[in-house]
Design a protein around this nucleic acid. Structure first.
Lengths: 351, 351
DNA sequence: CTGTTAGCGCCTTCAT
DNA sequence: ATGAAGGCGCTAACAG
C-alpha cells in the first residue's frame, strides 16, 4: 500500500452542519463553484478529466460548505455502494477480530466501510446475513470458508459483487480465497513432533461441526503421523467451542485415560494454553513429561513461563490481503484466485 | 429481548436472483399482489394498518419473487438508514470485540446492521470516522468515552442521530452513556486489597494517554488507598499499549526497584496475566509473597493455576444494553441518560 | 384501509 | 472538458 490519492478526501474539519439547516448537497456546491452538479460529482469521484482550475474551485467550495456526500443517494444512483460486507463466524476469541483488524487496515485509507455480521458458525444464519448484506449492494462480501447453503452460494454467484472466502485454501473459491492450507498445517504439526522424537502422540480438540478447519488440521495431523508410520495413541474432544477452560478440562480428561502419552497436539492455542495451565496446576513438567503444541500463534501462548510451540496463522494478513485484492479490481476476474498466506512453526519451549 | 415481530422478516430461502435478470423491486411485488407500491412498502415496514387479507397477498408475492428491499433507496427516501455506526478504539485485545459482540447480539433480530470503524485511540481518526459514518445517515452512532474533538462533538450534537457513548459513566453524555464508573472500580480495588491486609501496594500500568479509563481507575485506586491512610509504595508504567507481554516486563521492572511490595494492582487483566507469568517464571509465590489484582474479568485470568482476582466489567452487556436503548426510541430524548452496568470483584486466588 | 403524487441526492448517458 | 436530462427504488404527505 498505498495510493491514498485514489480516494477523495472528505475529512478535515468542516464547519459542522446546523441541526435546523438542510444538509449541504451537490447542488449547493455546484452553485457556489459556478459549475454543474455533474462536474462536482466528477471531481469527487476523480472520474473523467477536469480542468485543474475547475477542480480547485470545486474543492474550495466543498471545503467551504463542509459538504459530505450522501452515500445512500450515491449507492442508489450507481447500484453499488462503498460497503464491504464482512461475515465472521464468531467474535468470542481473538482470531476473527484480528482478521477484522486486517480488513479494517486495508480499508482505512479508502471510503469503503465494513458492515459486519456474525454467524456463530451457523450456515443458515450466514445465508440470511448474505441476503441482508446484499440488500445494500455492497462492493464485496467477505466471508469464511467454503461451506455455504445452496441458496447462499447461488446468491453470491449470481450477484455481481466480488466475494472473498477467508482462512482456507483447500477448496475451490467462488471468486477469491485467501488463507492457508489447514490440512498442510496439521501435517506440519505431526512432522514437527515426530522430528523432536515424540512417538506417543495424542490429540485434544474442540467441536468440529462448527469449526471445519480444525477438523482439516486433525486429518492432516493423522496423515502426517501415518507418513512416519505412527498414529495417535489417544484423543479427546469436547463438544464445546474452543476455550482455555475447555482445553484445561479436556487435557485432564485425556490424561485420566491411563494411556502413556508424551506429546499432545491441540486443535488451537486456546485449547493448548488451557492444557498448559492444567500441567502447571497438577505439576506435569512441560515438555519433559508432556510436550504441547498448539495452532494460531496467539500472543498469550508466548507469554507462558515456557513459550508455547505452535503454528502461526497470519490472520491480520489474511484480512488485509483480501481487501487489497478485492479493491484492486471491481470486476470479478474470469478465473478464481487462491492466495496462500502460509503458516510457520513457532519454535517455543513446549515441544 | 425481544419482539421479533416488529421487524419484517426478509429471510427464508427466496429463489436466488438470476444474474442477468433485473433485480426485483417494489413495483414487481405490487403488480403481482395487485396493490400499489405504497401498500407493499407499508406491509414491509409494518406501518399503518393493512387488511389482513392484503397483507397476506403481499407477503405471498414477496416470497414468490424473492424480493429483497433496496436499502439505499429506502435510506435516500427516508433520510435515515438501518445502519448503526460503531466506532471502537481497538480490536487488538478481546475487550472491544466483546462489546461488539453485545452490539451485534442486540441487533441480530433486527434489520439494523453495524458499520464499524477503529480509531486506534486517536481522536482525530474518530472525528473522520464520525463524518464518514454520518454520510450514511445512520440510525445511531455508538462510540467510546466522552473525549471527542470539538468538531466531532458538534457533528454529533447537531445531527439528529442517536448517540451512545460506551464504557464510562463518569461524565455528561451527549445523549446516552452506558458503562461503569472506572473511578469507583479503582476505589473498589483499593478497598479490596486493604481489607485483605495488604499495605505495601504498588501499581503496574500501561499507556494512559490512549486509555483514559485506565487513568480513571488509577485515580480511584489512589483515592481508595488514601481513604484508609495508605498510598502507593511504588508504581511502574509502560508507555506501550497493554498486553500480557508488557505486563510481564513492567512487573519485572517494578520489582527490580528494591521497594518492599506485597500487592500489585494492574491497569487491566492483560497486564495482570503477564505479571502472573513473570511470578511463575521467577518463582514468586502468589499471593503469599506477592498478591495480584487485575481489571476486566477476562476468561484467561480464570484459567491460571490460581484464578486471578480481578474486577468484572460487563462488556457484552454494555454493547447489548446500548443497542436496546438506542432502538427503543428513535428520537433523542430530552434528557441525557446514563446507564450503570456496574462491576463486581471476582474473588480469585491471587489477592 | 389504500392510492396518488412528488421528490430524496446522486450518477449515468448522451450531448456539446 | 463540461452540461442537461432522466431515473435509480423507495417513502412521505396527502387524498380519499
Amino acid at each position: 500500500m498505498t495510493n491514498e490519492r485514489r480516494w477523495a478526501d472528505t475529512s478535515g474539519l468542516p464547519p459542522a452542519p446546523d441541526a435546523t439547516a438542510k444538509p449541504v448537497t451537490l447542488a449547493h456546491v455546484a452553485r457556489l463553484a459556478g459549475v454543474s452538479e455533474n462536474t462536482v460529482s466528477r471531481v469527487i469521484r476523480d472520474k473523467g478529466s477536469i480542468a485543474p482550475e475547475t477542480r480547485q474551485r470545486v474543492n474550495a467550495a466543498i471545503e467551504q460548505l463542509g459538504y459530505v456526500p450522501n452515500r445512500a443517494a450515491g449507492s442508489l444512483a450507481s447500484s453499488s455502494s462503498l460497503i464491504i460486507g464482512v461475515i465472521l463466524p464468531s467474535l468470542s476469541n481473538i482470531v476473527f477480530p484480528e482478521v477484522l483488524r486486517g480488513i479494517n487496515a486495508g480499508l482505512s485509507a479508502t471510503p469503503y466501510r465494513p458492515m459486519i455480521g456474525v454467524t456463530d458458525y451457523d450456515l443458515d444464519i450466514e445465508h440470511q446475513l448474505i441476503a441482508s448484506l446484499l440488500a445494500w449492494q455492497p462492493a464485496a462480501i467477505i466471508t469464511t470458508g467454503f461451506d455455504h447453503t445452496v441458496g447462499a452460494r447461488r446468491m453470491l454467484e449470481n450477484s455481481r459483487v466480488r466475494v472473498a472466502e477467508l482462512m482456507d485454501i483447500d477448496n475451490a473459491p467462488i471468486d477469491l480465497a485467501v488463507g492457508l492450507s489447514h490440512h498442510e498445517a496439521g501435517r506440519a504439526m505431526a512432522h514437527h513432533l515426530v522430528q523432536r522424537g515424540y512417538c506417543n502422540i495424542a490429540y485434544v480438540g474442540h467441536d468440529w461441526t462448527a469449526d471445519r478447519r480444525a477438523h482439516a488440521r486433525y486429518v492432516g495431523l493423522c496423515e502426517g503421523l501415518a507418513e512416519t508410520g505412527l498414529s495417535l495413541v489417544a484423543e479427546c474432544r469436547t463438544d464445546q467451542a474452543s476455550s482455555t477452560l475447555e482445553g484445561r478440562k479436556t487435557l485432564s480428561n485425556l490424561l485420566s485415560g491411563g494411556v502413556h502419552i508424551d506429546a499432545v497436539a491441540f486443535s488451537n492455542d486456546d485449547m493448548a494454553v488451557g492444557g498448559f495451565m492444567h500441567c502447571l496446576a497438577v505439576n506435569i513438567a512441560v515438555p519433559e513429561e508432556l510436550a504441547l503444541i498448539g495452532f494460531n500463534g496467539l500472543e498469550i501462548g508466548q507469554v507462558l513461563p515456557k513459550p508455547l510451540t505452535t503454528v502461526l496463522s497470519n490472520r491480520f494478513a489474511i484480512g488485509k490481503t483480501a481487501v487489497e485484492l478485492l479493491l484492486a479490481g471491481v470486476q470479478r476476474p474470469d478465473e478464481t484466485v487462491k492466495i496462500d498466506t502460509g503458516f510457520s512453526i513457532v519454535e517455543g519451549a513446549t515441544a
